[in-house]
Design a binder for these strands. Structure first.
Lengths: 160, 160
DNA sequence: CCGAAGTAGGACTGAATTGGTACTGTTTCC
DNA sequence: GGAAACAGTACCAATTCAGTCCTACTTCGG
């Protein structure tokens, strides 16, 4: 159902929690408690995020995880990219010739467009937006999103 | 990878082919040949689309499938909905309390926003767009898309 | 009336993906 | 040197996906 995996879901949630209490380290155990996700799972996800450079990890007894970059700098798309792999809504749109129809397939280009739109939607929302208590603080971000789509339009004639 | 299933992919392709040759019936066999998808698979997908009312089916020896509505009237979102189930990018955003965090989860509302954006992207493209030979004929549709996102913005202040 | 060509509707299977756990290091602090 | 944290990897159970197959049922044409 065009669903992203639970891992990604967890990842965003965890990052959001971390972003809400910046400046200090968070241990996997602590995060597991506050999110009610199993500790093993939390570790797994945090590790991936750390490998991807979204989190900094500190080894040792006083260790833990903290954001590697300011929350405003991290887009949801990046997080999804890390935990979900590259975003490609169809085999067509992943770019490498995995689709045997490639080239002659009439819908290819249009899938790509849809793909970009989704990309844009995810890119427009940052971790800071996510961590904000108030639901829709996307004013700025949505502007960005609009701009992105506008740029793809090119001509403005509503031709059929 | 935020990927829709192959069924959906097939479905859109098949509908596109049907939409490109309107006015006549298409048998599963014929479509299988022209798309190089196995006939069994084609039948399966067409059946689902017919059940959902996107295709009209004609039984009997001269039977086949044809569009139930004009191609401009069918959005990609509908097709995806039929073949993929309701679009919900996270468990959070499907509405029924499958997420134990529901209510207290800080990211819930924002996921919903992202979800809507994706919805919008899929809704903005019709079967007619897909069937059009020229890749990006989305001028009109993308305008719709922009409008949708604009309406969600509400205030225009770029507040953090 | 009968057969061919089509759809309708299942059941079924093998493979891949996901979600989750367990275990064994390694690093750092005290 | 031991405890508490991360690091890495292997593993398993469950689900989902992709695809096939089989048996109706319906219609057209002779």
């Amino acid at each position: 159902m065009i669903r992203l995996t639970r891992q990604t879901d967890y990842g965003v949630l965890l990052l959001t929690v971390i972003a809400s209490h910046p400046g200090r380290g968070h241990t996997a155990r602590e995060l597991a408690e506050s999110t009610r996700i199993s500790q093993a799972m939390v570790s797994k996800v945090l590790k991936l995020l750390a490998q991807a450079g979204l989190l900094q990890s500190q080894l040792g007894v006083k260790g833990g995880y903290s954001l590697a970059r300011p929350a405003e700098d991290v887009t949801v798309r990046e997080i999804v990219d890390v935990l979900e792999g590259p975003i490609a809504i169809t085999v067509c749109s992943d770019g490498n010739g995995s689709c045997e129809q490639e080239g002659r397939c009439p819908v290819e280009a249009n899938w790509r467009t849809i793909n970009q739109a989704i990309h844009g939607a995810l890119e427009a929302i940052t971790l800071a937006d996510m961590a904000a208590p108030c639901p829709v603080t996307l004013s700025g971000s949505v502007a960005k999103l609009g701009a992105l789509q506008g740029s793809r339009t090119g001509a403005t004639e509503p031709s059929a």
